[in-house]
Design a protein around this nucleic acid. Sequence first.
DNA 1: CTGCTCCCCTGGGAGC
DNA 2: TGCTCCCAGGGGAGCA
Length: 305
Amino acid sequence: MPELPEVEHLRRTLAARIIGMRIEELVEGPHDVLDRSQVSASAPRTRLLLLGATVVELRRRGKHLAIISSDGRVLGLHLGMSGRVTFHAEPDRSDRHAHLAWRLGGRLEGRSGRHLPAPSTADAHQPAWCVFRDPRRFGGLTAWASPKALDDAWASLGPDALETDASILVGRLRGLRRQAKAALLDQSLLAGVGNIYADEGLFRARLHPNQRLDRLSDAAIVRLVEGVQAVMSAAVDSGGSSLRDYVDADARSGSYQDLHLVYGRAGSACPFCERTLRSRVTAGRTTVFCPDCQRLIHNRRGARR
DNA sequence: CTGCTCCCCTGGGAGC
DNA sequence: TGCTCCCAGGGGAGCA
């Protein structure tokens, strides 16, 4: 379940392996997972998939990643539910879920003044093939004509839930007539929160998932934003949450799933009050919360406007 | 504006 | 052991 922390951890581990590298060969799987609606129809497919390009930057906004090449080509990457990017000595041509494999080579040191990680002794032994695999295909690739085109598209996303100053996120959430959980999951309000970190953030903020935001004081909204950011920040440090599929570019699992307080724990005791955690469907997602610690607030508390 | 419901897709787990 | 069934979930479309 890659959400912001998993995607950010992947970005970091992947950057260490592909920044400065040239894509010298590519192999595609049987399924077409490339969205080319954002580029001209005549653009050659291999060009859109960055063949011959040198990677200079890996950007992230919410759960979205984008690979920027030195000649301005951009390939967006979304992991969906089950996506992963890992490295192998050879591409497995019989794996029907391996959608794209790149053979990388020729790291160019210091290109365009950018600081590059010093080559380690392990570099020479690193498998040369970078493989994007996504069995469920909720994820995929998007070709962009330029970094500017990417920026324009990403403008429809809200600000990144982790990198953005809390006060800005508070401003976007306060006064909304929506339920807290639905708002957190809305990527156009703030980008990066998925089902896990929404539940964990709500629990830490002591707010009910169905809480209407316009009934809350500013202090409570601040608590919510800070709860979500704290959880995500801790999760990045733990390498994310690995429930089934997620691994980083070094094929390592995260460990934050061990620190989940409510997600996946319906029927167990609340870690604070010991009452049984409950599960319900809210905003189309299974939602776990403590009915005792997370009470609905019906009146408007505290100063607001 | 808001909240639904459905759909995409596969594999892991539960139940028999 | 092996089968079927259900469900997870990000995101977009369509509808009340």
